[in-house]
């Protein structure tokens, strides 16, 4: 397996700062905006962004939740491996809210579609925007595009983009793995 570093820890920090600035630019004090992290990997990024936003906007009270797309996936009973659910925790209504949806890697768009269906159970949001750390270009199987992108990459199907976090025991970085 060949490994290439797409984003190192210094660049990752810069990207998280930039994405946070873009969110503040569009949502100001987050009074009617909520952040939803996608289980399992998007949550790590969402927490980092949240931390950054709190540092930049100490007075803002930003509502945060996590959604698990497992029960809404379209590959249940097709996927080779079992789809095991993670926690969903949205302790507020999404009715009329602007939702910022956060995941680490955007590939086919199917996980996002499932996640969108999941959050609709919590009310009808005014809008949903997608933020991703890595967008894999030209690989979408559904018409889903992000509004905020950390980095766009071109990759083959046999490659995998892996986001690693310090919290998991390694260092903050994004790798491109080739089988």
């Amino acid at each position: 397996m060949r490994q290439v570093t797409l984003i190192d820890s210094k660049l990752l920090h810069l990207i998280i700062t930039r994405l946070s600035c873009q969110l503040i630019e569009n949502h100001e004090d987050f009074s009617n905006t909520v952040i939803i992290g996608l289980q399992p990997r998007g949550v790590m990024l969402a927490e980092r962004i949240l931390e950054q936003l709190k540092g930049m906007q100490p007075k803002a009270n930003i509502a945060y939740g996590v959604v698990d797309p497992t029960f809404y996936r379209d590959d249940f009973r097709i996927h080779d491996k079992p789809l095991i659910a993670h926690k969903t925790d949205i302790p507020f209504s999404l009715e009329g809210k602007h939702v910022i949806f956060i995941d680490d890697v955007l590939y086919t768009g199917r996980t996002i579609r499932a996640g969108l269906e999941g959050i609709m159970e919590y009310g009808r949001p005014a809008s949903v925007e997608l933020l991703v750390l890595v967008e894999r270009r030209f690989t979408r199987e559904l018409p889903i595009e992000p509004r905020y992108v950390g980095k766009s990459v071109d990759s083959y199907d046999n490659q995998q983009v892996r986001v690693m976090w310090k919290k998991d025991g390694g260092e903050d970085k994004v790798m491109l793995l080739t089988e």
């Binding site: 990997r41 996927h79 079992p82 892996r162």
Partner: peptide, 8 residues
């Protein structure tokens, strides 16, 4: 895509 955790 959140495939990594799924495979484990």
């Amino acid at each position: 895509m959140n495939t990594m955790k799924v495979t484990e």
